[in-house]
Amino acid sequence: MTVTRLVLTDFRNHADASLAAGAGFVVLTGENGAGKTNVLEAVSLLAPGRGLRRAPLGEMARQGAAGGFGVAAALGDVEIGTGTQPDAPERRLVRINGAAAAAATLAEWVTVLWLTPAMDRLFVEGPGERRRFLDRLTLALAPGHAQHATRYEAAMRQRNRLLADEAPADPEWLSALEARMAEHGAAIDAARRDMVTTLAAQIEHQPESVFARAGITIDGWGGDAHALARELRDGRRRDAAAGRTLAGPHRADLLVTHLGKAQPAHLCSTGEQKALLLGLVLAHAELVADRVGRAPILLLDEVAAHLDPGRRAALFERLAGKGQVWMTGTEPELFDAVPGGATRYVVANGTVETSN
């Protein structure tokens, strides 16, 4: 799937931007703050979720405008539009081929993966960001994963509210919520573990290269629906005292190791961590293309900035012919080794113009 046209209306610092893109590399260059990452964020909103910045929708509307924003894209014969209205700045609207749709259904049409500078600390921060990263990787292989996650979290929030209430909670209502959590929680765990097992096997058989090979496993809760329902029922008093649910897939973590050094990722150098993360995303993109039959759209924000010329050339070579790749950088020279045929734009002060 390829974005052939992208139109931004009052999105971030872009009042009215339009881009036409080819099937391979799309290179955006310009000074810091020009709006390059904003374009990538707009593309990331073609998938379920809150985009690569995870920002509130109200922050995405252009300051000084009437309020609300729009992102429209053509992907072959599919037209996708998303955005907000001025009178409901935090309510996301989605249309697919002109018909209203739930954001979760976007996973059936397009897969978007990204790397941003903010993710450089993925392996040293708390498990929350790694879970979100794990879920993005899983969603690319199992489009229904987003709906399971949404329903699980909604049921968990209701259960937590009931347990926090001073009045005794209705046991039957608690049991119904726990049954819903168990059903969707088991599906979440199964999809995650299937993805991790498959990706780990693919990485293990890849040759050594400039991109470090990562070993990946899931740490934390794992089990079937019956086990989770029983654990939730037995843990009501414990969870009420804690003020949150202490069992379930929302407590899992993604553990990553440097296979070449047999060392946990969080103990590796900053450069090694970046290489591990990049290698993971590249291997996963290849896995998605093999299993789903369509290459994901890759968004690589400032990915070339801290790579030496040899590693940049190796990166571009590995990405060539593997689908659409959007990349940003401050200097056009960073992308001299990108194969011919790339679509190139210069971004400045919220304007986007083609570059030779």
Rank of each mutant, 00 (worst) to 15 (best):
F133S: 02
Q147F: 06
L141R: 10
H148S: 14
A155M: 10
R151P: 10
L141I: 01
G144D: 15
A146M: 09
N160W: 00
A142N: 11
A142Y: 13
H148G: 06
H148A: 14
E153K: 11
M156P: 10
A140E: 00
P143Y: 11
H145N: 07
D135G: 07
L139R: 08
H145Q: 08
M156E: 09
R136A: 10
A146Y: 00
A142E: 14
L134R: 06
T150E: 15
A154S: 13
A140V: 05
T138C: 05
E153W: 10
L137C: 06
P143R: 10
R131T: 14
T150V: 14
H148W: 11
R131L: 10
L141Y: 02
L137Q: 07
P143T: 07
A155Y: 03
G144L: 12
L134N: 06
R132M: 15
A140F: 06
A146E: 03
L139H: 10
N160A: 07
L134D: 04
R130V: 08
Q158E: 06
R130T: 09
T150I: 13
M156R: 10
L141A: 04
R130I: 08
L139K: 04
D135K: 06
L134K: 05
Q158F: 00
M156Y: 03
Q147C: 07
G144Q: 14
E153A: 15
L141N: 05
A140P: 06
E153F: 12
G144K: 13
A154M: 10
R131M: 14
A155S: 08
A155Q: 01
R136C: 03
D135N: 10
A155R: 03
Q158C: 00
R136K: 08
Q158D: 07
L141M: 05
A140M: 00
R131A: 09
R151F: 12
Q158V: 01
P143Q: 08
D135V: 11
A142Q: 11
T138H: 02
H148D: 14
F133G: 03
H148E: 10
H145Y: 12
A154C: 08
D135Y: 03
R132T: 15
R159Q: 01
T150F: 13
F133V: 02
L139Q: 11
T138L: 02
T150S: 12
A146P: 00
R130D: 04
T138I: 01
D135I: 10
P143C: 09
Q147Y: 05
R131V: 11
R151L: 14
T150K: 13
L141D: 03
R132S: 15
N160C: 01
L139T: 11
R132Q: 15
L139A: 12
F133L: 03
Q158H: 11
Q147T: 13
L134W: 08
L134Y: 09
T138W: 02
A140W: 03
A155E: 01
R159T: 00
A149T: 08
R151A: 11
E153M: 12
H145T: 08
A142H: 15
F133K: 07
L134P: 13
L139E: 11
L137W: 07
G144N: 14
A154K: 11
R136P: 06
A142F: 14
M156L: 12
G144R: 15
P143S: 12
R157H: 09
Q158G: 01
